[in-house]
């Protein structure tokens, strides 16, 4: 019993803490989106609720809570009610394998700062879970019984098949280079080495472009496409169910940023800094802080790109996915494996 407790208790604490951080992050990313978009358009942004509008997410949450939850008559009920969960849950589950920091040593025992420390296939787990996230869009769009929604679902489904190959292949070089599917191994492989966005520049570019399609953000937010198909797959949703879609989208953004940081920007690493020197507790805390700062930068980048670029056309996205990203990722794979096999590059662990 004690053995179980020793495993479950730290895991439970970590889950609670990380969920709290992520959900707060989601709330404040929505505020950041509105603020940054306002600044980019020479506006002020929300500033009425609390100082500098800092309580705006709370107000938004309350509003979602009290709104009427409408189920259209033509909807296919069981699926319609299930779909928002299919978006939110995968988005939150993916955080279980992302390493947030080094480790905290308390009473002679060290606790690594990620939820599932034994996972040596973290990247595969993450990819498989996020490949399921598309079902939220498909189910929601199809079951609403609305033409705009089903167009959103169709676009989402065809979008997913055109960018996912690029994502997989661009990540493969990182995996081969560091010799492991474990995200913590990939982070360690960048410790004291140049971060992977320098050595795997082509793969980084492919992944960066594809990740915008993965998170359904502009310029690839075709499943939503407000100006063409109203709200796309979530046209009919309202109240808390819409909030779930909304939170899922922003949680996906945080996951995508975390993945970018972990795979290409050295995770919690900073050049010439060894976290072990900062003591058993502060080393872990500071490394986590660095990690979240990097995530914040990429969240800003997502918002920045959204308010700069217009939406791509549907066929243009397919073209980019199949005719540009896919061959580019293949070329990258060929190049990197050649470098590793014939010139001895790569990280030996």
């Amino acid at each position: 019993m004690n053995a179980w407790l020793a495993i479950l208790l730290p895991a439970a604490i970590k889950i609670v803490v990380i969920l709290a951080i992520v959900l707060t992050g989601v709330a404040y990313t929505t505020l950041a989106e509105r603020k940054v978009s306002a600044w980019m358009q020479d506006r002020k942004g929300p500033n009425r609720v609390g100082p500098f509008g800092l309580l705006q997410p709370v107000a938004d949450g309350m509003k979602f809570f009290f709104k009427e939850d409408i189920t259209p008559r033509q909807a296919y009920k069981p699926v319609y009610l299930l779909a928002p969960l299919c978006t939110l849950v995968p988005a939150l589950v993916t955080f279980s394998v992302i390493p947030f920091g080094t480790e905290i040593t308390v009473a002679g025992k060290s606790y690594p700062l990620w939820i599932a420390p034994g996972m040596d296939l973290g990247l595969l787990f993450l990819l498989s879970i996020s490949s399921l996230a598309i079902y939220g869009i498909i189910l929601g769009g199809w079951s609403s019984g609305n033409k705009y929604s089903i167009f959103g679902a169709l676009r989402g489904a065809s979008q997913v098949v055109s960018y996912e190959l690029g994502v997989g292949l661009s990540l493969l070089t990182v995996v081969i280079w560091s010799g492991s599917f474990g995200l913590q191994d990939i982070v360690n492989a960048q410790k004291g080495h140049p971060w992977f966005f320098l050595t795997h520049f082509l793969g980084f570019i492919v992944f960066l472009v594809a990740i915008f399609a993965e998170t359904n953000r502009l310029p690839f937010d075709l499943p939503e496409g407000e100006s063409e198909i109203v709200g796309g797959y979530h046209t009919e949703y309202s109240g808390l169910r819409f909030a779930m879609f909304f939170m899922g989208e922003y949680a996906n953004m945080i996951t995508a940023s975390a993945l970018l940081v972990t795979l290409f920007f050295g995770g919690w690493n900073l050049p010439f800094v060894d976290w072990a020197k900062f003591g058993p507790i502060w080393g872990g805390v500071l490394s986590a802080a660095v990690f979240f700062t990097k995530i914040a930068f990429f969240l800003f980048f997502f918002i920045w790109v959204r308010w700069t670029l217009p939406r791509f056309r549907y066929d243009q996205l397919m073209n980019i996915g199949w005719k540009r990203l896919f061959p580019l990722a293949l070329a990258n794979l060929l190049l990197m494996t050649t470098l590793m096999v014939f010139f001895g590059f790569g990280v030996k662990q």
């Binding site: 498989s128 490949s131 399921l132 598309i134 079902y135 498909i138 199809w142 089903i150 679902a153 169709l154 489904a157 065809s158 997913v160 098949v161 996912e164």
Partner: peptide, 12 residues
Amino acid sequence: GAVMVMAVFIIM
């Protein structure tokens, strides 16, 4: 993640 999405896409 891929095959069934394709199938569902075709059904839709």
